[in-house]
């Protein structure tokens, strides 16, 4: 589904990685490893199409992602360090706008259910400003369930989550991959995905 050939990235004057290549099929997960500042986030941003690599290209179903930008926009969901949650909107409104901006159908019952699944049913009506960091992270992650995207690109999805949260997100990712999805993640915390084909690469030597 997703393949990468001969990818290189420089930030400032430093070369972060080069000659990176891998291929992901349906039902596979890719774990990107590497210390702080080694280019994990840069790699994920390149894979999502937000930044351009110094050399090489990212292919989605055999086509360069710039050429299939529209389709890739529907097929891919990206969650970065920032949660893209607006303080002045409720979690439900946040999910609604996120869906509309990505051109997706929105079903509010489904959204309520998604929020409940991540343990947020009691704060659906609150403005997001009142939520803790971990709760906002959960709101952002619950958007994944509504996105209907085949490929998930998650930058440190477990940051700020408590033990329950981690378990919920593990389950979420597991069921996505089990249903034939693809996931790419970076994480410092151990992530348990039993029985899933995991590929791991490390960046930055």
């Amino acid at each position: 589904m997703l393949s990468v050939a001969d990818l290189a990235c420089e930030r400032g004057e430093r070369e972060l990685f080069r000659n990176l290549a891998f291929e992901l099929e349906k039902g596979q997960a890719l774990l990107v490893r590497g210390g702080n500042g080694r280019g994990k986030t840069s790699l994920l941003r390149i894979l999502s199409g937000l930044s351009s690599p110094t050399a090489g290209a990212v292919y989605w179903r055999g086509q360069p992602i710039e050429a299939v930008r529209e389709q890739y926009g529907y097929d891919m969901a990206y969650i970065g360090h920032a949660n893209a949650i607006k303080d002045d909107l409720t979690p439900l409104e946040n999910l609604q706008f996120a869906a509309a901006l990505r051109g997706r159908q929105f079903d509010s019952d489904q959204a309520v259910e998604a929020l409940a699944q991540l343990g947020l049913s009691h704060c659906i009506e609150l403005p997001a400003r009142a939520l803790s960091f971990g709760q906002r992270r959960r709101v952002a992650l619950s958007g994944l369930m509504l996105a209907g995207a085949l490929l998930w690109i998650l930058d440190e999805p477990l940051t700020g989550l408590d033990i329950d949260g981690v378990a919920m997100v593990e389950k979420l990712i597991y069921s996505h991959i089990a249903a034939g999805g693809v996931a790419i993640m970076t994480t410092h915390q151990p992530l348990v995905l039993e029985g899933v084909i995991q590929i791991s690469i490390s960046v930055g030597g």
Binding site: G73, A82, N83, A84, I85, A98, L101
Partner: peptide, 14 residues
């Protein structure tokens, strides 16, 4: 830009 919504909007299919 600060809260990450801009990234999401730029990734939209439009």
């Amino acid at each position: 830009f600060r809260d990450g919504s801009l990234e999401q909007m730029l990734l939209s299919p439009y």
